[in-house]
């Protein structure tokens, strides 16, 4: 997003120049909380153990507050406020689960579910169950658009039917490289991929939100395929995607083959075998094969990011493609 808008970044607590933090007192759902100045409402809610749904927020990204599902009611404010990006202020009185909050969250989920394929978004499905959201209430879904149709939409122009079916973002999946796929029929436009590709992590700026309104979509310049774009395949966007719209090719292929079996998978936290930075890897393995490499957001070193080598290059342990079984064949002492 706009890098001119710089929110003040608190110095690390152990930084010698950090002044003693000012403590704020606020009331959340009747509980009194004391927090350091600069804390977001979401952090306050989390510290009180109040489970607050989020879709576009992530620990390692600048809040963009676009999904609007983390909104809470702030006494004295005209509208609900996004807890992810609203800083706590002294004396605030906040209601995190009022009927107004519940209604807003439910309708937001219904709007998303009515326009997006949520089949690989377990988190969203859980939220929908929690708020009894009905994705069908705006009518049956419109037929999917042809490949590239949404990419060509021009700002300020649209086609409207008779309203009997609900417009969606359904479209064919984009497969233009061997490492990951883009299924924008599942995209809720949370901006996490754009942020990951931007200043929050990779800073390659290969993708951005193009178009406007309901036609807004994640796009490269003039929607060129990824190999023609600035993408460096760090995969940080894939890791960040909350709905499976971006998916590692390895996972996509296994799912297509009906061989994606979460019950048979294990995840292991380890360290990347390439350069000396020491990024944390989370390996998902199935049938003794690495099927997905993710990066924990809480890693003190890599904070959710990896480069192409750590993300995709680690499959070397399975041998060079096409040379499986071609392991060293000498005798063991």
């Amino acid at each position: 997003m706009n890098p001119h808008v710089r929110r003040p970044q608190p110095l690390p607590a152990d930084h010698p120049g950090t002044p003693a933090p000012r403590l704020l007192t606020l009331t959340i759902d009747g509980q009194v909380a004391q927090v350091r100045e600069g804390t977001s409402l979401l952090k306050v809610l989390q510290s009180l153990g109040i489970d607050t749904p989020t879709l576009c927020w992530a620990e390692n990204l600048t809040p963009v507050n676009v999904c609007r599902i983390c909104v809470v009611e702030l006494e004295g404010a005209r509208t609900l406020v996004p807890s992810c990006s609203r800083a706590a202020e002294d004396g605030m009185v906040v209601h995190s689960d009022s009927p107004r909050v519940q209604a807003a969250r439910r309708t937001v989920l219904e709007l998303l579910a009515s326009s997006v394929d949520t089949s690989t978004a377990p988190q969203m499905l859980a939220f929908m169950a929690r708020y009894a959201a009905d994705g069908q209430r705006f009518g049956p879904a419109q037929a999917p658009l042809a490949a590239g149709e949404r990419d060509r939409a021009l700002a300020g122009h649209h086609h409207l039917g008779d309203g009997q079916s609900a417009a969606t973002v359904a479209q064919p999946v984009k497969i233009d490289n061997s490492l990951y796929v883009r299924d924008y029929a599942k995209c809720i436009l949370c901006y996490k991929c754009v942020e990951s590709c931007g200043i929050d992590a990779q800073a390659s700026f290969a993708i951005a939100v193009a178009g406007r309104g309901f036609d807004a979509r994640i796009s490269t310049e003039h929607a060129v395929p990824l190999p023609e774009s600035a993408c460096v395949y760090c995969g940080t966007c894939v890791d960040a995607c909350p709905t499976g719209a971006l998916m590692f090719k390895s996972e996509h292929d296994l799912r297509q083959a009906g061989q994606w079996r979460p019950a048979d998978q294990a995840t292991t936290r380890t360290i990347c075998p390439f350069c000396g930075v020491g990024c944390t890897l989370e390996l998902t393995s199935q049938d003794n094969k690495i099927v997905r490499v993710t990066s924990p957001k809480d890693s003190p070193v890599s904070a959710g990011a990896l480069c192409v080598k750590g993300r995709f290059g680690t499959v070397f342990v399975h041998g060079v493609a096409g040379e499986e079984g071609d392991e060293p064949s000498s005798t063991v002492p």
Partner: peptide, 17 residues
Amino acid sequence: LHAYNTGVQSDSYASPL
């Protein structure tokens, strides 16, 4: 960017880079 030393570890994946 996509490769590493003599390629022992980085030859085995199909990097578009």
